[in-house]
Write a protein that binds this DNA or RNA. Structure first.
Lengths: 210, 210, 210, 210
DNA sequence: TATGAATGAGTTTTCATTCAT
DNA sequence: GATGAATGAAAACTCATTCAT
């Protein structure tokens, strides 16, 4: 027993993080338990002790993501609207909803890589993450649509467009080795759909700065 | 010798097509020579007789794609501009350039799947298709930029946006099992960037109909 | 500590019983510590705390069997003969000796399964139960031979035959999912070797009934 | 490629034989592909090339057995009876039917070991050979019953007894390391059920000798 | 009395590849 | 122009066992 026995919760997190990174590099199919275990400093069996199987490991990652993401975003929005008492969200909130997603991608490119790669791999109905990403896409589109209510002509369509823009720009950003400013490009792009975005952005920034 | 000895070129094409389909389903990592060979009605060795190795097979597919795609698009454009004698492309041509891509995706969803899946898998520098897709993205963005000259404020940026929109909408379309009209969604989306698109479309259609 | 800390002796018995059942199903090779531990509601390590190793667990089961079986049979017989003062056993005792074995199998089919399966698996010299079953077969044949003295021409041969019949019928009974009356079949079979068996049986029964 | 490429049919037979021997020693659960492959002078994969999986290997063995056994016995019997024109078999044939089985066991102890061990292991409904041995036992009992018609009071019962005797004696023989004469013991035992057996045996032998 | 993390060896199976025929 | 036997490496997973706590 060479491995200096770690706090199990810490170890779990360590594994999840390493797995997320590796899937971001090679996809789920390209991930090998052996490689992952080695990078975590344990044996094959030692790793599977935590998650039982490769697929369950994936599920664990996705669940973790779900917890830390969708829930939070949704909750934030609800609170804001409840507080305001109005039917629709403010322009600032709408913009922040979308920008928050991109901000996260910029600050955590490994997570972005993970999503970008796995999401495409999971286009196949038999992929273990297929259902997850299908469900999630429906949910995100729904959420976007709600958020956009009152701000565009056809909210569902705009939701599609924004989601497409985010995903598409992110992928270009990764392929270009993050050599352009994703945030700037997104801000420009969102202006196509929400023409008032630029003004709001400047106002918000001014507000923050002062 | 069960296999009724086929014309080698036909056989090659058959293999390439089957491989394209399978990569569209499982990615390059998920593709197995065994599976592919079986579906082509020949043995492992028989298949490798044609392509030497799995990676060379991938290269062959990509080369084939290159030939049948970029070349054609580019050539068409050049011809058009040369004929017109002007510096910029006509609105109709610009629109057709982008629509042609989407049209191809709609009419050949298996090719779309192949690109969608492989493009993401190839985000990794070590992936055998990494260089291909990097090169290609640069080229496409360049082409788009040129085409957009004189039609938008910042052509390079619009190129980015259009490419992102196409890729993003395509992926949504695949995940939704092609249950919405991709062409319509694209036409709506392109209007955000090229406000005159709708008019041109109607005119063109009228022209075609009459 | 989920397990409600049990009386260690009770726990030991619980483990032995579960192990007996599982070996009856999958043999010793097919038994896994993991499975056994789970069914006993404790962990791998917890189980091995009791028996040290898989092989020692098997030994423990066999010892337990030895204690509760051969010993008892043998003792009963000795008492009977000592009491009677004669050199040979009475017909009733002879018959009861063999019937007792079958009765046990009928009333405890899980034990029968255990013996049936393990006995065959242990035909291999390297099997951890090889010596046990070899010793035991010699002993049983010897016991049978002694018991049969004066009742058949060649007691050792009859012992062989009876042992074969019991084992063979038992296995048929198990394979047929206990769908015929093993006791009846045995009583009929034993009559081939001990022609007076039927009469004795009827007399004994009459005696019991009245 | 160290292995001097063998005639595939010969290789198949070699594998089947080695597998039969190993299963006779360790059972199906105790058989490992690795061990088997090594003894055949091939790698794991090389072996599985022939049979696909461990279970399919077992199936192949059982099918081979079926072909070379039941079929032959049955055919022989039918021919004999058809030739004689009578409803029942002759005493000599009846006896030969049973003796043939034992003879085979004596001359091919590895086959006997295989059957003895696997038959018990396969008492479990989930064992891959369960169905095979169930079907086979039903068939054998049926065959025996037919053969015994006209020669004993209750043919089905006698069939049971004979099958039990054969199986039981065989197992004793194996455990005793073949140190007694199984054929003799069987001939003595069958006399219990077919009292004329001894006479027939002597007559047959005399006939053969003269 | 156990648990629970971890090992090391081994399991079946898969895969890309090779090469004699 | 292919087949078909075989390899070698690696895949995911299992298992008996160990040992600090």
């Amino acid at each position: 027993m060479r491995q200096p026995r770690m706090d199990p919760e810490v170890r779990r997190q360590q594994i999840l993080e390493a797995a997320t990174r590796l899937i971001g590099l090679h996809g789920y199919n390209g991930l090998t338990i052996q490689d992952l275990a080695q990078r975590c400093g344990l044996t094959n069996g030692g790793l599977l002790y935590y998650f039982g199987s490769k697929e369950q490991l994936l599920v664990a990652i996705l669940e973790e993501r779900d917890r830390s993401e969708a829930a939070i975003i949704h909750a934030d929005l609800e609170i804001e609207r409840a507080a305001s008492g109005k039917a629709n969200y403010t322009r600032s909130t709408v913009l922040q909803t979308f920008r928050a997603i991109v901000t996260r991608s910029v600050t955590q490119p490994e997570l972005l890589r993970f999503h970008s790669v796995l999401r495409s791999e999971a286009l196949n109905r038999e992929h273990p993450a297929y259902a997850f990403f299908l469900r999630r896409e429906v949910m995100v589109l729904g959420e976007f649509t709600k958020v956009l209510a009152g701000h565009v002509d056809v909210p569902a369509r705009a939701a599609r467009q924004i989601l497409a823009l985010i995903g598409g720009l992110e992928q270009q950003w990764l392929r270009a080795d993050m050599s352009f400013d994703l945030m700037v490009e997104f801000d420009e792009a969102i202006t196509l759909i929400l023409p008032w975005a630029k003004t709001v952005l400047q106002t918000d920034k001014a507000f923050v700065t002062n």
